[in-house]
């Protein structure tokens, strides 16, 4: 048993390594991919919020001073780094063109393969997030508290797991649909907006903000951000529990969808 465990570990690790090779095969491309959120932050988020506060001469917006709004947006970027991967982007294409056939023949499953690819990318993202965070911290834009960091990172990791699995389910819908990126973009658009990644939930109309708590969205950005900032007032356990519940739900869904899908698969033109 120990032997097979070791072999399994080797498979995972080899997949991670080859993904790193592939990602770094085009270095400038990779740089653009990971640096994108940083550019968005400096050139859009920072500028826009600075503009709004400056032009209107307001000190606080719904309790956020400019410094707090800035910190909020920094943490949104960090959570994005930790939780959002690009897995699922190519997944549908691999199924549609029948390239998944290769993975079906390997003695290493398709899900582990995708998961390892995700982890490989997240490993690099973690590095980028750390560097960015340290730089921003050195500029004095955010404060780092060890406990909040620990809690925030764990919560963000759970969010990452949720996103991975949600993307996986959407990706394997390609067994039936010709294109699935639309579903992915829809989900991302919705969750960007309703998770408070663009503007904090405090700025939302009251009724809407309250209704959102029944959905997974606030747990995907708003809560981890508040935890990182050290201003989260709700129950941390509840946040974890709700997030895990949603993650389990998508896991179950993925299982059902995969079983059905693989059975219907026709391996278009192998």
């Amino acid at each position: 048993m120990a032997g097979t465990l070791k072999a399994e570990w080797h498979k995972w690790w080899a997949t991670v390594v080859i993904n790193w090779r592939r990602l770094l095969a085009y270095k400038l491309n990779f740089l653009l991919l990971v640096i994108g959120p940083v550019l968005v932050f400096f050139f859009i988020r920072y500028q826009v919020w600075a503009g709004i506060y400056r032009l209107e001469g307001v000190d606080t917006l719904q309790g956020y001073t400019f410094e707090q709004m800035l910190a909020y947006q920094v943490w949104v970027m960090i959570v994005g780094f930790l939780a959002l991967g690009f897995n699922g982007m190519n997944l549908a294409e691999e199924i549609r063109l029948g390239r998944i056939s290769s993975y079906l023949l390997y003695p290493f499953g398709f899900w582990p393969f995708q998961m390892a690819s995700f982890l490989a990318f997240q490993g690099l993202q973690l590095l980028v997030a750390t560097v960015t965070l340290l730089a921003v911290w050195a500029m004095g834009w955010v404060q780092l508290q060890p406990l909040a960091l620990l809690q925030g990172f764990s919560l963000a990791a759970c969010v990452g797991l949720f996103w991975f699995q949600a993307n996986f389910v959407i990706g394997i819908l390609a067994f039936w649909l010709e294109e699935t990126w639309v579903l992915r973009v829809m989900l991302v658009t919705l969750s960007q907006f309703f998770s408070g990644a663009l503007i904090p939930l405090e700025l939302f109309p009251k009724a809407l903000a309250q209704a959102l708590h029944w959905l997974p969205f606030p747990y995907l950005t708003y809560m981890p951000v508040k935890v990182f900032m050290g201003t989260y007032t709700g129950s941390l356990w509840q946040a974890f529990a709700v997030l895990l519940l949603w993650t389990l739900l998508v896991f179950g869904l993925a299982r059902v969808v995969w079983r059905q899908g693989i059975h219907n698969y026709t391996g278009a033109g192998i």
């Binding site: 085009y26 991919l33 968005v40 826009v48 709004i52």
Partner: peptide, 27 residues
């Protein structure tokens, strides 16, 4: 020159995002 250009496409989308705000808001 880049060959793999997902990054360029993302950059493009970020520029679009930038254009969605009126110019006076920027520094």
């Amino acid at each position: 020159w880049l060959v793999e250009s997902m990054g360029i496409n993302f950059l493009r989308m970020q520029l679009q995002q930038l254009s969605r705000w009126p110019d006076f808001i920027y520094g």
